[in-house]
Design a protein around this nucleic acid. Structure first.
Length: 205
DNA sequence: TCGAAGATTGTCT
DNA sequence: GACAATCTTCGAG
């Protein structure tokens, strides 16, 4: 098993952290057991000037974590039914985070499948931020916990070469839609959505 | 206290 | 592709 990523890993430019989190292993332990997956898709949310970032609304009860120290989780509930997992980055006072959007199951696959309503295909277990959290068992109880110890840790995984990383605009947001802050492992079948290839349209399919 | 919007997903056409 | 399900958060009244 790879070593746990140190606190300093997260205390850097959010775009760098987002790219280097590709290929790392997120591992979540609950009373039901442990499940882990290799991260293949991330997005950077980089502060109050980033209108798609929750911190654009300023410091509130909800966003207080983003202003805290790096290396902690930021888990929020969206659309009344899904959890999204982020890793808080940068030094204190810089409200930014990396959203983990998709991963490739590594261990605890049967547990993930059970949580995910017996989805037959592996790719449907973790190819989206809400699915990923459901499969790994991440919920509000994991909000604000350290990523250096159980129940939630991120470990070194496989090395990802720079030419394997593809950069695209972020998904599912309505502001700052053109900012190229989404990073995926090129060609990995577990990413949530593939970049559009046909020119002309500005919408993801 | 109320209303609107949201870093999504699954199902139907 | 389009849309409903569902509820927390936040700002306005």
């Amino acid at each position: 098993m790879g070593r746990i990523l140190p606190r300093d890993f997260y205390n850097r430019e959010t775009e760098i952290v987002a790219q280097e989190m590709l290929g790392t292993i997120i591992e979540c332990t609950t009373p039901e057991g442990t499940a882990s997956a290799m991260i293949v898709e991330t997005e950077a949310y980089i502060g109050e000037h980033d209108l798609a970032c929750h911190a654009a609304a300023g410091r509130t009860k909800r966003t207080a974590l983003l202003y805290g120290p790096p290396g902690f989780s930021y888990v929020y509930f969206i659309y009344g039914m899904h959890w999204c997992f982020n890793a808080v980055t940068r030094a204190e006072g810089m409200p930014s985070a990396v959203l983990v959007r998709a991963a490739e199951p590594v261990s605890g696959k049967s547990l993930m499948r059970e949580r995910r309503n017996e989805m037959p295909r592996d790719v449907d277990l973790t190819n989206g931020p809400g699915k990923l959290c459901e499969a790994l068992g991440i919920d509000g109880a994991m909000n604000g916990v350290s990523l250096q110890k159980k129940p939630l840790v991120i470990r070194e995984g496989r090395a990802v070469r720079p030419d394997e990383i593809e950069t695209t605009p972020r998904i599912g947001i309505s502001r700052a839609v053109d900012w190229p802050l989404r990073y995926i492992i090129r060609g990995n079948p577990y990413v949530s959505r593939f970049p559009r290839t046909s020119p002309g349209k500005n919408k993801q399919v």
